[in-house]
Design a protein around this nucleic acid. Structure first.
Lengths: 201, 201
DNA sequence: GAGCCGAATCTAAGCGCTCACTTACCTTTG
DNA sequence: CAAAGGTAAGTGAGCGCTTAGATTCGGCTC
């Protein structure tokens, strides 16, 4: 095993990651169709052709970004709700986690929420499945709270949709240079989530 | 005055409107950069060059769509809150109006909420001003309710942002062929808004 | 009311340019 | 030397937009 810093393998891995990172930044700022493969290569410090050494196509870059992002979110939300705490605590934890991700990783979040129409039909269906899974996690916690009598809402499915909606839209308007921190937003939205589902005081 | 159906003037007006309409559909489905001027012209039943008879550029089409859409929303929300009803009723009316627009006109709403990055800096600033005005209307109703003691929320500005956020994101996920009607969503979100601002029962 | 003009609508053709992606080749490293 | 990383120099296709000119039509003249 050789020095990691000079290994060909490690160099390749680093370039691959730099390209993905550059693609996230560019797709977020200019959109998939507004970004050229030259933009991505240049931002990664490589020649235009280098994109195709590590990725099959521009669309495959978007797909990789989308899969990774949705995996992270699904795991985080699942983790947050997989406790034996009361429904109120679990909903608050799920929303807090979800909001923190969308605020802290708003660049990635913008790409994986707003650029999905540029995916191939097959890739889109794959991502749509992951999104349905995230939706299901949130809806089931709300439904459970309603069944147990902890929550009171006229429509648990709409309530769950609204909670996810708030997190997603956060990625659209959130600015790093604003005065609202991810943590203060997570606090506010966690409290708001309990109002939305009608959690008993 | 000649027959309207055959007048040159009327033909021109109709083409202009058809181009704008085609642009809304295309921008919504494929994004600004994913749409070609040929797409727009073809959808409007005209040759590619006809776009430039009625509009200066592709960006100017987007600008016209954005101005129109924001004018409608600002007027609707202002109208809904300009009554001497109690704050709770005014917030509910504003949210109801806002949600109805974003559900019924989700195609337009998608364009004017998600394609603004493609505007020139000057046009973007113009639209940003209109968006701030909409934000102000909503925030002021919430703040007034808090001052009068009708509402109870730890952060009126965040609450107002959340209410607008819900409406905007609705345009992203709403489908005409879904089972949720604009009216049922408006009802649900109006009730939800009162929970969010902590309206006294 | 026939004949014509000017303005507006619209298109065929195509301009210069950038796009995503490929090929043929060199370099680095184990 | 084999395998992987990387690039210079393209490819054809499609882009936004322009130009030159044909067509349409209301209104004016006599």
């Amino acid at each position: 095993m050789s020095d990691v810093r000079t290994s060909t393998q490690a160099r390749g891995d680093r370039s691959r990651a730099r390209l993905l990172d550059a693609a996230v930044q560019a797709f977020s700022a200019k959109g998939f169709h507004g970004t050229s493969t030259r933009d991505i290569a240049t931002a990664a410090g490589l020649s235009p052709a280098a994109v195709y050494v590590h990725h099959r196509s521009k669309e495959e870059l978007l797909h990789a970004i989308a899969v990774r992002g949705h995996e992270i979110i699904l795991e985080a939300v699942t983790e947050a709700t997989r406790t034996d705490a009361a429904p109120a605590e679990r909903v608050a934890a799920a929303v807090r986690t979800y909001v923190l991700f969308h605020a802290r990783s708003h660049t990635t979040a913008r790409v994986i929420n707003y650029e999905l129409a540029a995916l191939t039909e097959e890739h889109f269906r794959e991502i749509a499945g992951m999104r349905r899974a995230i939706d299901t996690v949130m809806r089931e916690v709300v439904e459970e709270g309603v069944r147990s009598g902890d929550f009171d809402t006229p429509d648990p499915a709409k309530a769950a949709t609204a909670l996810l909606s708030l997190g997603i839209d956060l990625a659209r308007w959130y600015r790093d240079d604003g005065s609202w921190t991810p943590e203060s937003l997570a606090d506010f939205y966690a409290d708001l989530a309990l109002r939305v589902v009608g959690a008993r005081p």
